[in-house]
Amino acid sequence: MSDLSRLSVNQETIRQWSLPELAEGCVTAGVPGVGLWRAPVQEYGVERAARLMRDAGLTVTSLCRGGFLTGDDRAPALADNRRAVDEAAALGTATLVLVSGGLPPGSRDLHGARERVAEALAELAPYAADRGVRLAVEPLHPMFASDRCVVSTLGQALDLAERFPAERVGVVVDTYHLWWDDRLAGDIARAGSRIAAFQLADWITPLPAGVLLGRGQLGDGVVDFRRLWELVEATGYAGPVEVEIFNEDLWSRDGADVLAEVADRYVGHVLPA
């Protein structure tokens, strides 16, 4: 199989490219989807970016990111997340990825921090639904729990999402963050129609200093992508499959070469043999 019809390349995977270069490169490579990030989109102009992608015939599969909802001062975070919803709607994507945020300064209360996320979702979900956007709660690997994301497993993400209608709050299945969890198969089945995004990156060790940029190219690490593909497909998910890799080695290379390698690895390591 060499079908790229569901492949999406997250903007951060080829961070060295501008938005016009990303659009042109994806069209040339036959990649139909892109995942975008707020900061470069804001810099380029939201409406201008939406027009660029639309004119190129590309689907914006997600916008990253909203969230960071665990702080003591909720009002600025909620206001920023409403702006993120508006940006997602303008870009034509129905998926706004949320990274919940870490522990508030001085706190050790993980449960309390997750409850803050739930309270914020209750305020944001109706606003997003009115604009055709679903909030997608992304669990991050536990090493990020203190400073970035108190939601560490798909089960924890579902515990939050299931308080709301599935069409309003979904979850992200990201292979980099979830591959290690022995409850993952059951949690993916439980997620069902709540899967709003399926993101791919490999796990390689040793992790670099700072760990954030430790995602590996597909096939370079230990993640069993085909098994996870099968588990997600079994839920009925038929949406985009987005490759999101933060890796300085990839960013130092020619963008067209990186994109061609991503497509080749997607066919060779992710699609059913």
Rank of each mutant, 00 (worst) to 15 (best):
M1P: 07
S2C: 04
S2V: 04
L4I: 05
R6L: 00
I14G: 00
L19I: 04
P20S: 13
A23L: 08
G25I: 10
V27M: 05
T28E: 10
A29S: 13
G35N: 05
L36M: 08
A39T: 12
A39R: 13
P40C: 04
Q42M: 12
A49T: 09
M53L: 15
R54V: 06
G57H: 13
S62R: 00
C64D: 07
G67Y: 04
F68L: 09
L69A: 01
P76H: 11
L78C: 04
A79P: 06
N81H: 07
D86Q: 09
E87R: 03
A90R: 00
T95C: 13
T95P: 05
V99G: 03
V99Y: 06
D109K: 02
D109G: 02
E119M: 12
P126Y: 10
R131P: 06
L135D: 02
V137C: 10
P139L: 00
A145S: 01
S146Q: 13
V150L: 00
V151T: 14
L158E: 02
D159R: 09
R163F: 02
F164C: 06
P165F: 04
A166V: 14
R168E: 14
V169Q: 02
Y176A: 09
D182L: 06
D182N: 14
R183H: 11
L184M: 09
I188F: 12
A189W: 11
A196K: 01
A201V: 03
W203V: 15
W203Y: 15
I204Q: 08
T205A: 10
A209W: 11
L212S: 12
G216M: 01
Q217W: 05
L218T: 05
G219H: 10
V223G: 06
V223D: 02
R227T: 13
E230S: 15
E230N: 11
L231H: 07
T235H: 08
T235I: 11
E244C: 08
I245Q: 02
F246V: 02
D249Y: 03
L250H: 03
G255K: 04
A263C: 15
A263Q: 02
D264C: 00
D264V: 05
R265K: 13
R265N: 07
G268L: 12
H269I: 00
V270D: 03
A273D: 14
A273K: 11
